[in-house]
Nucleic acid binder design. Sequence first.
DNA 1: TGCTGTATAGTCCATGTGGACTAATCAGTC
DNA 2: GACTGATTAGTCCACATGGACTATACAGCA
Lengths: 206, 206
Amino acid sequence: MRDAVDRLTPLGVMVLALLREGDMHPYEMIRLMRIRRDDRLVSITTGTMYNTVARLERAGLLEEVGVEREGNRPERTTYTLTDAGADAVVEWVRRELPRVDNPTEFRIALAEAHNLDRETAVELLVVRRAALAGAHLTLTEGRTHAQAKGVPEQYLLEVEREQAVVAAELAWLDAAIARLDDPDFPWGAPAEPTERYLAQRKAARR
Amino acid sequence: MRDAVDRLTPLGVMVLALLREGDMHPYEMIRLMRIRRDDRLVSITTGTMYNTVARLERAGLLEEVGVEREGNRPERTTYTLTDAGADAVVEWVRRELPRVDNPTEFRIALAEAHNLDRETAVELLVVRRAALAGAHLTLTEGRTHAQAKGVPEQYLLEVEREQAVVAAELAWLDAAIARLDDPDFPWGAPAEPTERYLAQRKAARR
DNA sequence: TGCTGTATAGTCCATGTGGACTAATCAGTC
DNA sequence: GACTGATTAGTCCACATGGACTATACAGCA
């Protein structure tokens, strides 16, 4: 019963989230995402972008709102988010935020966590904390078990590193949850939602 | 000038590395890799496995060594590693071990680092350490710059987490390099290379 | 004036992935 | 003795990815 939300790719989610800031054409999405260094989180190539947007349109998560043309340049097809699209982002983030498999998906969910309300985000991160502690325990058990069986150390380096990284994430997560839970920590969309976006857009024009 | 080594997929590398322990048919590779929890590092599906093996064969990195049949079951095509295949693993690991982009590839390179000689491994990890320190600095700069521009904290959570994780990896890496550099730390293939493999194979049979 | 390089806004296609499907065998069980 | 479910060993196909390619416009420079 894989629904539309399950079928969202990482880039698809980021596109939908981006459209919350305003209507855009694919090429502009690429520029903006590169400026913001979103390519740390997903690889961004033109082929994939145009295909992704077409797919999201077929799924009814975004819609064409116009085709412009400047001089003799290629046409620019501008897209806008549908209600279903806005819901899909929220639902996707809600699903991925607590999961400890798929690190890629988690990083995007965290980057887009501000699309949830604060209570939900905190709650889901608490769930994640528990799952992460479980994963850490599993790694520890697996490693001691392997050592008991006489597996040489050089085969366990990667597991060891994973333990170190997971431990660090646990520590960070504890601190992060405590901070988010404090109403002084800012949350949600800023008062003037398009301000930041427009500034960056202007910067990109020059 | 993308050569055969560049075109290796993560699963492809693990398959080649696995064949160093003995000839195998694809289905057995899947079972073994699942038992060893190699699916922590790469996703393992049958479709992808058979396709990967076929691709590696076309590239001359492995070869068919026989087709058996037990009763009326489907045929089992067994494969063996070629010299080119053995070289390709080493070269791939050598390339990926120092790189700080593509975390997935790095984890596999680390897991297969024992295919390199100790000096090479240490040297490449030292290179990685420098690159990782650079990446950490870039994150720090990016974050202070964003804060100076007034970007609200909730948008920087993911960067913050990344910093924490990278810092932990730096610490682990320093310790790991020091240990590897000590000749008391075991390295390379064990004296009886197939022993561990055979034990696991037997266990899987039951 | 002509030339080079880069930005704009895409299309197209080879390839890798993953999930559904097949089909036989074997172990357990009621 | 029939039925169920897991294991064995794969095939097949829809689809997502990414890199090559296209074609126009504009800016700088000599």
